[in-house]
Amino acid sequence: MTESHQLDADKYENDPELEKIRKERNYSWMDIITICKDKLPNYEEKIKMFYEEHLHLDEEIRYILDGSGYFDVRDAEDRWVRISMEKGDMITLPAGIYHRFTLDEQNYVKAMRLFVGDPVWTAYNRPADHFEARGQYVEFLAQTAA
């Protein structure tokens, strides 16, 4: 299930609400990525990679600290749903959900990436229906639709 939170990005370094979420969800690893032409090596290649429809075997957690962009996710009928993300927004995408990310017209976002345990950056481009995480997600969708 996709989750979202609204936090105060100006105080992310000492935010008790963020710490509470990290503790409850066991988000033990964190880094910050800045996506813009001047800051991200291989910018054009990375932007194309982020926009390629894919899934992960683990949750994807992003907390927008500055700037804005879009996560596109597939709904139960396999249609795209665009989620606008801006400063203060945190999203958790479940393992196995097809998604992609793109910047908006600002061409800039600074985001915190969170993981349970060590970071796993592997993205599996569609089709990737053979993974157990995908099967579990599809089963979850079927149960919630019933």
Rank of each mutant, 00 (worst) to 15 (best):
T2P: 04
T2A: 05
H5D: 01
H5M: 05
H5V: 06
D8T: 11
A9Y: 11
A9F: 05
K11L: 05
Y12A: 11
E13K: 02
K20P: 04
K23H: 08
K23W: 00
E24H: 03
R25C: 02
R25Y: 08
N26R: 01
I35K: 01
K37G: 05
D38S: 11
D38I: 01
Y43H: 06
E44P: 04
I47V: 15
F50M: 03
E53T: 15
H56W: 09
H56N: 07
D58A: 09
D58N: 14
E59C: 03
I61W: 07
L65I: 14
L65Y: 04
D66Y: 09
D66W: 03
S68W: 08
D72G: 07
D75F: 08
R79S: 10
I83H: 15
I91K: 00
T92G: 07
P94T: 12
I97R: 11
H99D: 03
T102R: 14
L103R: 00
D104I: 01
Q106W: 02
V109K: 02
A111M: 13
M112T: 08
L114N: 06
F115N: 11
W121V: 08
T122P: 04
Y124H: 15
N125S: 12
R126D: 03
P127Y: 09
P127W: 06
A128D: 08
G135M: 10
L141G: 06
A146M: 08
A146Q: 13
